[in-house]
Design a protein around this nucleic acid. Sequence first.
DNA 1: AGGTCTTTGTCTACTGCGTT
DNA 2: AACGCAGTAGACAAAGACCT
Length: 323
Amino acid sequence: MPQPAIFADRLHWGLLHTFLVIAEEKSLSRAALRLNVTPSAVSHSLRRLEEQTGGRLVDRNRQRFALTGQGALLHEAALDICKRINVLDTTFASGVPAISGTLNLLMLSTLVSDTFDIFLTDFCKRFPLLAMHVETLPSSIILKKIGQNLPSLGLALCPRETRDIRRAPLIPQRYALYCGRNHPLFTRERVTRQDLLAENFVSFFSDQMGDSLAALAEYREKHRFTGTVVASANDQDEVKRLLYAGYGIGCLADDSARKDVLEGRLRRLPPEKGIADVPVYLVWSGQRKLQPAEIIFINGLCDAFGRERPFPAAGETGETHGA
DNA sequence: AGGTCTTTGTCTACTGCGTT
DNA sequence: AACGCAGTAGACAAAGACCT
């Protein structure tokens, strides 16, 4: 006894294209015009598709045209198929295999960069089959995960390159001193560097010698700041919260604090030129064999920021590179 | 009433597959 | 290779429903 054909076997894919045009034109006649066939041919095709799918796909009469629930589901699936087929067009033309899968990105929070956002927009268009998972974490956790060879790339503060962690400097970040609106210095007309030396500090956990924000601690030490650290956090947003509360003065990246200054929550303090540059690095495992998508992402991001490509020979051919 | 849109029935052309 | 069969796509004609 013959088995009933599974859905994909009994469905004629060509009818899906006709159905997509019908759904877009919201009319069989207009679909026929666009497909360069007669309206009856479109009607026949729709009926055949409804027979194959086992239910009505379109509620249609002279007054009304609407996809049924089943029709909407099929339309969504057909769009997805269409999108995947369209990718093949550029793939075949370029001779480069389509990149698919998932790219995991670990990012430090409150990273502000128009260049990165523009890069991501372009990357999304170029590789629509590649899913992106983004998790925000403190830099120390990102480096730990990358060092454990988890299948991820990171955007983090990275004080040094090691055998396990490779890095490329990406986004320059100038750190400066700030106070919140509840701090006594916020409303003082003129503030000099001398006024800051005895002020209590809000700091990052990583704001210690040898850690990723050591440059901030070095500055305090070098310029003989005598105030004590009265509050600390591992995250830029939480440091801001402590500054808003008025615990003390603290360091923040200018890019992440700019909006708060404009909106009257923070005040930028001397020195005018800031106190240290701590770039955000693109980091990846030095031990794990990277996926083609990861290499393309790394090279593309370095291109976007005008940095040297770490994998210049790889191009975008899908060739893989280890450390 | 005439025009438009959709549906239905019938026919032809084409293609793929199995058989000879 | 040639043939026949089955399935599919699409054209044509006709009819029904609805709008102006």
